[in-house]
Amino acid sequence: MLSIKNLHKKFGKLKVLDGVSFDIPTSGTIAVLGPNGSGKTTIMKCILGMVIPNSGDITLNDMPVLKQWDYRREIGYLPQIAQFPDNLTVQELINMIKDLRSAPANESELIDRFELHPFLSQKLSNLSGGTKQKVNIVLTFMFDCPLYILDEPTAGLDPISMIRLKELIDRKKNEEKTIIVTTHIMSLVEELADEIFFLLDGKIYFRGTVDQLKKETIQEDLEHAIANILTND
């Protein structure tokens, strides 16, 4: 469904992506891992068209996406830092995004799930980081999309919300959606990821399941497996 070919991106002199290629043929959850600055967010933003690659191709359902915009209907994106217009209330923000996207949304179920009712009429500037992240999650999942891209979705979440988020991702997986997620929480990866893409030096260094990664690095748990990759270099 999503295909990336030979993607290159430089920010000034810094090479961030140096020929990244991959295919995601079916549904499932893919965890994109890698050290800080390895280009995880850049790939995601390339898919969304927020970062414009120097070269390479991206297709979604066999349609090229570069310089297009309508394909974003197919994507739910959860950005890393949740900052919203300060003057709006939560309800207004949700309504606005619904209005802009003009697609059916099931926000009420998500508001229940993350217990956001008391905050609906509050201004976004008054919300805590965790609450903002919950709003962020609502905005991402309230539309029914074949592809979800989640950049550090757990940032600032309390354990209960974290569990609810996992349930949500699981459900989407069962609905045969594709979910691409970056995170530093390894337990989340172990629980959810069907496949891992490990990015290093602007390339995909490793691609496979959690077990394959453990096997290859001869490590018992995932964190050590990753540390092993990084120190071997």
Binding site: R73, Y77, P79, I81
Partner: peptide
Amino acid sequence: YSSQEFTELLLAQPIKR
């Protein structure tokens, strides 16, 4: 500058830049 995040939110929506 103060609406940069809002802008990013919009950029991820199906809207032309």
